[in-house]
Structures are given as C-alpha cells and as structure tokens.
Computed example of a mutant assay.
Amino acid sequence: MQHKFIPVLTLSALFATSYEASAFSFSTGDPDFRIAVGAQAGALEIESADDFILAEKTQLRQASFTGLLANGATLADIANVNVEIYRVFDKDSVNPPSGRVPTRVNSPADVAFESRGSADNTLSYSVSVLGDVATAANSVLNGIHPLPNQTTGGEGAVSGREISFNIDFSQAITLDADHYFFVPQVELKNGNFLWLSAAKPIVGGSGPFSPDLQSWIRDENLAPDWLRIGTDIVGSTTFNQTFSLTGVSAVPLPGATWLFLSGLLGLLGTGKRKQTAPQAV
C-alpha cells in the first residue's frame, strides 16, 4: 500500500509566521518649549495637528501628549479628553479648497478619519504633573485668522502647569499604511490647555522620518481650513508637537479571512493521506 502526504504542517507554519505582530512605537521626543498652541474642546473648539507615518497596517493602543494648563486651569477643570486621527488633504476633503488660507498642501483633511473620547468611554486617560510652572516662549490660542491676516507672529510667552496625558484606547485604532495627523483635545471647565512643541527635526524621539510635516492649527471659525503654525502664523519657522504612539503593526487578517484559510487548511488536512487501490498481481 502506498501513501501520499500533502505537507500541511509546512503550510500551517508559513501561514502562522505571516501573521506575527510586531511592537510599534513613535515619539517626537520631549518638549522644547518654543511654542504652546491651543488644543481644546468646549465653547470654542481649537484643533492642533502633527503628523506621523505608518509603514504597514497598525493598531494603535496607547498615546501620550504634553502641554500646559494655563489661564487659571487646574487638574480639577479637566472634563474630557479626545483624540482624533486625520488623513492628509485632499482625502476626506472638498477639493478645490476655499482659498481662505495660504495653502492646503500637506495639511490635515477637512474632517477626522477616526476619533476616540473619554466621554463615550472609547479611551481612558491618566494625568502626570511634570512641573508646577513651565513657560513656552510663544503661543497661539486666539490669533487664528484667515487670509490676509493670518501672520500675527504669535501671542507671546505663556506659563502654566506642565502635564502629560497618558491615553489607553479601549477601542483600538486600526490604520492602514499611510500618512496621518494626530489631533488631541482637552475639554476644560475653566482656563485653557495648550499643546507644547517638540524639536524639529525630531531629537530624542523615534528619529527623523520623511517627510516630517510641520504642525497645523484651526478653530471652529476657520474650519474646514487649517493654518501652518510656523510658516503661516508665526512666520519663517516650523514646529513639531510633543506626542507618542504605541501599538502593534502587521495586524492579523479579519476573522472572515482567517476562517476561510483555516477551512482550507482543514480540507487539506482531511485529504492529506491518500490510499491507492491494491495492484493486481
């Protein structure tokens, strides 16, 4: 009797290897205190954005960002924390844009691609106090204007309590390989939250990446447009913002695909041993 074997074990091993996830982390490094910019929800929404690149499909599970509680804000004033992910214009956007800003090239899109918030329990957060008093050399909070009045030079130095938000996404954010913007917001009962800048090019974080776009800002009056914090508002400079992301890359295929391939392997397994008919003597 002769037997024919199909190498199911080898196929299974190759299949398993292709779905091993690897750790992902990204950081822009520590604050450089060159500027602090509005990043808050509430009565007047202000969104600030800085970019990151994913080389492969990635599931984001944690994040952090650092800023100042200013203008009388205390830890007790923190009501909610939001994190949004934007793609790069012109995805998720009306094109051509309105023309109210110098450019939309390499800006965040008109609308968020993904969002999580503490109010609906899609993220949780903790706060670490890094310093009771810290000062940024410049700021942008109220001076966010369309053409032709966009270049204000900034609003001058601002001081406040330096804090870091540590975020856990209870619903992980799964993103394909692409270029994205990270947009955090803090809702306060009183005062303001301003997001601190980081070195550009990145120093002490995950290292430079290309292209490392500059940070952008808008308020609800400028939306859906955005302004470059450095080039458009301050003038003749660029900024990054302080944030980090962690998670896993090479996320496994969806369940339906897994079931299909598992079924295929099962069929191969049941047919792995084939018995031939006895030969006549």
Rank of each mutant, 00 (worst) to 15 (best):
F243G: 02
T74G: 03
D30Y: 10
E162K: 09
I173P: 01
T276G: 13
A199L: 06
I202R: 05
D132L: 10
Q62R: 15
T135M: 09
G131P: 02
G269Y: 13
F33C: 05
A177P: 00
G42E: 09
L259N: 03
S22C: 11
G42H: 05
S18F: 11
N121F: 13
L253Y: 04
P31S: 11
L265I: 15
S22N: 14
T231P: 00
D168R: 13
I35K: 08
L194Q: 06
V203Y: 10
A198Y: 00
S262M: 11
L68K: 02
A199K: 06
F169Q: 07
E84D: 10
R34V: 11
G72L: 00
G207D: 05
L213T: 07
A79P: 00
V183A: 02
A256K: 09
Q241Y: 06
N138M: 04
V281F: 11
N95W: 11
I173L: 13
V248A: 14
S25Y: 13
L194T: 11
V158M: 10
L44V: 15
S159P: 00
S93G: 07
P97M: 03
V83R: 01
E187Y: 04
L227G: 00
T246I: 06
S128M: 15
T257A: 14
K91D: 14
I173C: 08
S262R: 05
S206P: 10
G247H: 01
L44G: 10
